[in-house]
Design a protein around this nucleic acid. Structure first.
Lengths: 328, 328
DNA sequence: CCCCGCGATGACAACGTTGTCGAATGCCGG
DNA sequence: CCGGCATTCGACAACGTTGTCATCGCGGGG
C-alpha cells in the first residue's frame, strides 16, 4: 500500500480510502490510485485489516471425522452454504476420530480467531474448549454431544431410528435380529445400540448379546461377525447395521450368499434403491443437520445468548424391500 | 497479552518469550506468566503473529465445484492430508460451476494471503489470476486446465479413458454406441467426447451425432435422452456415460427396463460392483489426483520454479459385466 | 475584506504480535 | 574492590491496515 501511495503521489490514507470505496476522494486522484494499484498488482491484506478493525475474520471452523465420507461431505456443503449467506468462509479439519487431533485443530482454529466452531466430536472430553467458549467463541456440536460440557448440540434421533428399525423387522416376523455397530465409545453408536435394545424390549424380543457386534469396521471383520450371527444355533434372520459404511460392507459380504437375512441400515446412501433387493434404511436429512447447526452458530454470532439448545433432527424409515424379507 | 503481562508483573516481551518457548526466561517468571495466561484464558492471535513475522499464514485455498460430490470430497481429503504433512490448513470453497463465484472466491483467498491455491476451474478465463501468480502465489489447476493461462495442471486421462470404453464395447460386438456427457463447455466433458469419437474411429464405427447428448444433467432429461437413443431406427445397443452423476441417473432410468444396453461409465463409484449387472467403469484414483496436485503446490512453495508441469493421471477400465452385454 | 464552511488530503496512533538492542543484575576471577 | 561476562528482562519499532483528527485551499456570505 505504501508503494501504491508513492507511485500515485498520495498518502497511505488516500489509498486506503480508495480501496475501501470511501467518499471524499477526488475522482482524478482516485483514478491515479487505481492505476497504481493495477500496475503494482496490489491486493489489500485482509489479515492486517481485520487486526486493525478488530472485526471478525470472516471464517468459521468445521471439525469432523473425514470429509471423504459422504455423510460429512454433505454436511460440509450445507455448512458452507449457510456460511456463504452470512459472508463467512469455512476452514475444515478432519480429526480421524483422534481426540488429540481434534483438540489440536480446535485450538489452532481458535488461535486463528475463527468467528465460531462447528465440531463433530471425536473425543469425550471437551473441557479444553471451556476457556474459549467463556471468552466468547460460539461452539456448536454436531451429530454427537460434547463429552463433559453443556453446549449447543444438533443431533440425529439415533434412538428413535433403531427402535423403528427393530419394529419394522419384528412386524415382518423376525425374532432373531442382529445389530452390527461402530465402537460403543462413539455416542451415535451407543445410542443406536440403546435404541436397538429398546426396540427389542418393545417387540418383546429377548435381547441376546450373541447377536451384537460393536466396533468391527473393516470388511473382513464385518464379514466374520455376520457369519457368526448367521450360524448361531438360533441364527439371526435379520440384521440392523449401525451406519452407512457398515451397511455397505454387509452388503458386500452378503452378495454371494444364497440365503440372505432381512436388512435395515442406519443412514441412507446413494443407489440403495437400485440394489437387489433394494435396501431399507433409516434416513435423515444430513444437509438439514448441517444447516441447522450452522444457523444456530450464526444466531449465537448475532448475539443470541439464550441457554444452550439441544436440537434432535428426526429420522424416518424408508422401506425399500430388504426389511420386508420374511424369516424362513 | 498486555493483560497477561500486567497480571504477571512482567513486560509484554517476556510474555511473548514464554508463549513462544524462547530460552532465557527465568523459570519462576515463566511460571508466573503461565499462571496468568491460564487465569485469563489467553491465546495468542495467529493473525497478528503472521503479520508481524511476515511469515506464511499456514493455509491453502481449495476451489472446487461442490464438496458434497464424492469425487470432490475424496479430492478434498487427499489435499487436506498433504497439507497436514506440510503444516498447513485448508480453506474450501464451492463454486457451483459459476465462473464469477470462482473468481470471487479465488481473489478472496488471495487477499487472505493463503500460501497457495488449488483450483478446479469453473470458467475458461483465468487472466484475473495472472497478477497473483506474478506476485508469487502458487496456483495448481486440478481436473481441468486453466482457460487462457499456462500454469501447473493435474488432469485425468479423459481422452484415453473413453477411447478405452469404446474399444471395450466394440470388442463385445457393439456398433451403435451412445454417449451421454456433461456440457461440452466443461473441459473434461469435451475431452471425453473427443475420446469417444476417437474410439469410434479406431473401431471403425461411423460416428453418429444422433447418439450423443451433452449437457443434460437432471434425472428426467437423462431418462429422455436415453429413451431417444434406444428408440432410434438404428437403436443404440451400448451407452458410455460421461461422469458418475450421469451414470447413476442412467442406472435409475434403466432399472425397470427389460432390455438393457451395455454400459460403461466414466468415474468409479461405490457399490458399482453390487448392482445387477455390476457396472463396468473407467476408474481413476481420485485421491492420487488430489495428492499429486497438492504435492506439486508444496513443491512450488519450497522454491521449485521449473516451467509449469502438466501431469496426466492414468485411468483404467474395470470390467464388471455391464460392458460385456452382447448386442441382440 | 474577513471568516466560515466544505471538500480533499495527510499525519499519527493503534490493532496484537515479535525482532532488535540495550539495560540491569548478579557472579566470577583478578 | 573492580571489570567483565552471562543471564534475564524491557523499551521500542515494525508488520499492513484503518479510525481520528488536523490541515489546506477555495468559494461564498456578511
Amino acid at each position: 500500500m505504501n508503494d501504491v501511495a508513492r507511485l500515485a503521489g498520495v498518502s497511505l490514507k488516500t489509498v486506503s480510502r480508495v480501496v475501501n470505496g470511501e467518499t471524499g476522494v477526488h475522482p482524478t486522484t482516485a483514478a491515479r490510485v487505481l492505476a497504481a494499484i493495477d500496475q503494482l498488482g496490489f491486493r489489500r491484506n485482509l489479515g492486517a485489516r481485520n487486526l486493525r478493525r478488530g472485526s471478525s475474520t470472516g471464517t468459521i471452523g468445521l471439525l469432523l471425522e473425514d470429509v471423504a465420507n459422504p455423510f460429512y461431505s454433505v454436511l460440509t456443503r450445507a455448512v458452507e452454504e449457510v456460511a456463504r449467506q452470512f459472508g463467512r468462509h469455512v476452514m475444515t479439519g478432519s480429526s480421524d476420530e483422534d481426540p488429540d487431533r481434534e483438540r489440536e485443530l480446535a485450538l489452532e482454529f481458535c488461535a486463528r480467531r475463527v468467528d465460531g466452531l462447528l465440531v463433530v466430536p471425536a473425543g469425550l472430553r471437551h473441557g479444553y474448549l471451556v476457556p474459549e467458549i467463556h471468552a466468547g467463541m460460539p461452539v456448536v456440536f454436531l451429530d454427537r454431544p460434547a463429552g463433559d460440557i453443556v453446549a449447543d448440540t444438533v443431533l440425529v434421533d439415533n434412538l428413535g431410528g433403531t427402535v423403528e428399525a427393530v419394529r419394522h423387522l419384528a412386524a415382518h416376523g423376525h425374532r432373531r435380529i442382529a445389530f452390527l455397530g461402530d465402537a460403543a465409545t462413539i455416542f451415535t453408536a451407543s445410542e443406536r445400540l440403546r435404541g436397538f435394545r429398546e426396540g427389542c424390549a418393545r417387540a418383546e424380543i429377548r435381547f441376546d448379546e450373541e447377536l451384537v457386534a460393536m466396533g468391527v469396521l473393516d470388511e473382513r471383520g464385518i464379514a466374520a461377525s455376520l457369519d457368526r450371527v448367521l450360524n448361531l444355533p438360533e441364527p439371526a434372520t435379520a440384521v440392523v447395521t449401525g451406519n452407512n459404511r457398515i451397511t455397505v460392507h454387509v452388503l458386500r459380504a452378503l452378495a454371494h450368499k444364497a440365503k440372505r437375512p432381512a436388512l435395515v441400515g442406519f443412514d441412507d446412501f446413494e443407489l440403495a434403491d437400485l440394489l437387489d433387493p433394494p435396501v431399507s434404511v433409516i434416513a435423515h436429512d444430513t444437509g438439514a443437520l448441517g444447516k441447522a447447526a450452522a444457523e444456530l452458530l450464526f444466531a449465537r454470532l448475532s448475539g443470541d445468548n439464550s441457554p444452550p439448545h439441544r436440537v434432535i433432527s428426526p429420522v424416518r424409515l424408508i422401506p425399500r424391500g430388504s426389511g420386508e424379507v420374511q424369516p424362513l
